Simulated scan of single mutants.
Amino acid sequence: MTETFVTLETAKMLKEKGFMEDCMAFYTKNVLFKCNAYINTNVLKLPAPTQSIAQKWLRETKNIHICVYNCACGYGYEISKADNGTHITSSVYEGTNDGGEWDTYEEVLETGLQEALKLI
């Protein structure tokens, strides 16, 4: 198993919203480069955190929690306030598969990250 890094589009959105954490990967043009150690974000042109780091950053710095759930149709997400659980939005029947959900956890988390970043 390996960690999934955010897509180029999500990395751009994170940087725009103030993400400044050290990362083990970065994008140069459209190519993802992975490193063996954390690199200072000030050196990187476009840091690419793992999905879980981006999710934690949103929770701890922007008070936005992304919850991934599964059901008979696949995976979906809900976005709420991290401090009190107040519902903000969810992915009801917006997914890419025939059931209106996503086929993998990573696909729906990426979409949830992007939707959460649009809220900021």
Rank of each mutant, 00 (worst) to 15 (best):
K15M: 05
Q114A: 07
G74R: 00
S80G: 04
T41K: 12
L109A: 07
E107G: 09
T86H: 12
E110C: 07
N36E: 07
L58K: 02
K12V: 08
W57I: 00
Y77C: 00
N40K: 13
K12G: 03
C73F: 13
T50A: 05
F19I: 03
M1C: 08
F26M: 08
M24N: 13
E21L: 14
L8Y: 12
V43C: 08
E9F: 12
K34C: 09
T89L: 12
G85Y: 03
C23D: 00
A37Y: 14
L117K: 01
E115K: 15
E107L: 09
K62L: 11
M13Y: 08
A37P: 06
A72Q: 12
K29T: 06
K15P: 02
Y105D: 05
N36Y: 09
N30S: 13
N84Y: 09
A11S: 11
E16S: 13
N63S: 08
H87K: 11
E16C: 06
T4D: 11
T86Q: 15
V6Q: 00
V92A: 09
F33K: 08
M1E: 11
L109Q: 05
K56E: 10
M1T: 09
L113H: 05
R59N: 10
A54R: 01
H87S: 07
N42V: 07
T28H: 14
D103G: 09
K12N: 05
W102R: 03
A37D: 08
V31K: 15
K62H: 12
T96Y: 09
G85C: 01
H65C: 09
E115S: 08
